[in-house]
Structure formats: C-alpha cells, structure tokens
C-alpha cells in the first residue's frame, strides 16, 4: 500500500462503515458524529495535508518483531480481561443498573428533553462537554501556532487566481445550489439536537464542510472576503467563552457552575435555555476551528505555490 491517497480514502470508508455499525448498535448520535467527523473532516484534512506531503510512501523495511511482541502482549492482556465481562446485550449488566436508569427515568421530568444523550451531554455531564470544547479549541490553537503564515504571503496570494477551478463549471453551479442547503441543514441539526440525533458537534462540522466546499471551489481569496481568518479566530474563542459564560451566569444566579435550573424561574425552562445556549457555543467553536484548520492548510499550499 505505497499510495497514501488510497490509505486516506480507505480510512474514510472505514469511518463510514463504523458509523453505520454504530447506528446498528442504537448509538444514533455517535453514528452521526462519526460519519460527519470521522468520514468527513478527518479524510478532508488528511487529503489537504497529502497535498503538501509526498504522496507516495518509500518502500522501506519496517521492524515487525518488536511491534508484533508488544501487540501480542497487549492483546493477551485484553483477551484476559474480556473473559469475565457481562455478555453483549444483557440487560442486567452493572452498567445498566447503577447510574444509567436515573438518566432514562428522570431526565424527562428534570430536563424535559426527549433525546437523553443530549440531556446527559449538555446538563448531567455538561462539564465534560466544556472540557471537550476546550480540547477542540486547543487543537485549533495548536494548528494556528504551527502553520502561521506571514502577512505578506497573504497579500501576494490575492493576485493568484486558482486556475484549475475556473473551468469546473458544472461543479460550481451544483455547488451554488448545494451550499445554502448544506448550511441550512447544519442549522437544522444544531437546533434539532433536543428531539433527534444531532447537536453542536455535528452541526459545527457540517457548517464547516459547507464553507470548505465553497473555499475549494471559489478559491481561498474569495472566501476570505466572507470569512476573514482573523474573525474566525475570534469565533473559536467566542464559542468557549459562551459555554463558560453560561456556566458563570448560573453561578451568579445562585446555583453551582453549569446548573441551568437557575437560568429561568422554572427549572425545566432553564434547562432548555441552558442546553440551547451550550449547544450553540459548541457549534460555533467546532465550526470555526474546523474552518481555521482548513484555511491554515490551504494557506500553506498557497505559500508553497507562491514561493516556487
């Protein structure tokens, strides 16, 4: 498998199949995320980086013995561990009896959101999701710090019109039709998270995918007019601040951090509002981070073209 392009495409297909498998295991939210993040964005980023890196892998002899030994020991440890596990799908496993029943039974009363995964994600374990948004923000900061592009390369590249995308007439027309729908679908997913699969992450990624499609087809400089890189950087921070801000507001109103009961007079309404705002914060951060990462990768390709 010396052609990295094939490796990346196969890993994309692998994520798609695993997404469908998740669906079969009743994990609808996870399937949606895996499809959009795993198959979508990660394949996209790998292809973008492949453009900068040599596509064909040199046939080098690799050292299988050490790897084989380490892998076998870990495998043995794992197999050893699986022997006493509760059987697949049994209802009386400790996992289903100790903590989970309360989510399923009381969440309708306490939070009033049919999609229990969203209620656990945003309210019961809301702090985990804040941490997770911070992880995405850290990755954004990391990529921004590593792939910095100086001001003057940005100016010079304005004059550079991407020739190859000019005559893709059909693609551009279809894209003109598709992109608004993609963005609208993203917003639908964002606010539909309470009732069906969806939520901040998936919406953010789909929104970013729309914008990335636009950038690929109509060129970086045109899309920079609409989405200036500096404002997007601010948006990555704005999302996390929104999420944290909601938590702080709850503290100021008397509850603990991220306790939405205190947002409104009636606790259930407070939960609704809290979850809505929090999901919006997550959506903004994820969308802007994915966009920024893609912009930084494309700036790098422009920088290479400009230098040659």
């Amino acid at each position: 498998m010396s052609d990295l392009f094939a490796v990346v495409m196969l890993s994309g297909i692998y994520s798609l199949i695993s997404a469908s498998l998740f669906l079969d295991l009743d994990a609808v939210d996870v399937a949606f995320t895996e499809a959009s993040v795993g198959a979508g964005i990660s394949t996209l980023l790998m292809l973008a980086s492949l453009k900068l890196v040599s596509r064909y892998q040199k046939k080098t002899r690799y050292k299988p013995i050490l790897a084989f030994f380490v892998v076998v020991t870990t495998g043995a440890m794992l197999i050893y561990g699986t022997l006493d596990m509760p059987h697949f799908g049994t209802a009386d496993a400790p996992v289903h009896t100790h903590v989970a029943p309360r989510y399923l039974n009381e969440s309708m009363g306490e939070i009033g959101v049919p999609n229990v995964v969203t209620s656990v994600l945003a309210s019961y374990r809301g702090y985990d999701t804040l941490g997770e948004t911070l992880v995405i923000f850290t990755a954004g900061i990391g990529v921004m710090a590593l792939l910095m592009v100086s001001k003057q390369t940005k100016q010079e590249s304005k004059k550079l019109i991407p020739a190859d995308m000019q005559q893709q007439i059909i693609l551009r027309i279809v894209a003109k039709m598709m992109i608004p729908l993609i963005l609208m679908f993203a917003l639908y997913v964002q606010f539909h998270g309470d009732y069906g699969p969806g939520g901040g992450f998936q919406a953010g990624v789909i929104f970013a995918a729309g914008i990335i499609l636009y950038t690929m087809l109509f060129g970086l400089s045109t899309s920079q007019e609409v989405f200036k890189a500096t404002t997007i950087e601010l948006f990555t921070a704005a999302g996390v601040l929104l999420y944290g801000g909601v938590g702080v507001v709850c503290m100021l109103l008397g509850g603990n951090f991220l306790d939405y009961d205190f947002l409104k007079h009636d606790p259930v309404h407070g939960q609704h509002l809290g979850i809505l705002l929090v999901e919006l914060g997550v959506g903004i951060t994820v969308a802007s981070v994915m966009m920024i990462i893609f912009f930084k990768f494309t700036w790098r390709t422009v920088k290479h073209k400009y230098k040659k």
């Binding site: 993040v37 980023l45 992450f201």
Partner: peptide, 28 residues
C-alpha cells in the same frame, strides 16, 4: 440502550479528531 457510553464516546471522537488535526499539522 444506555445513553452514558454514547456521551463519553462523543467526547472521545472529538478528542481523536483534535489529535489527528494536530498530528497532521506537525507532519506538514
């Protein structure tokens, strides 16, 4: 089905993509 593992995995997927993105930037 039990919703808790789904929540944990949503976080793990995002962590995975964050690491991959940073790794790719390093590779570049």
């Amino acid at each position: 089905s039990n919703p808790l593992p789904h929540v944990l995995i949503l976080t793990a997927i995002v962590v995975g993509i964050a690491t991959t993105a940073l790794g790719l930037a390093l590779v570049v």
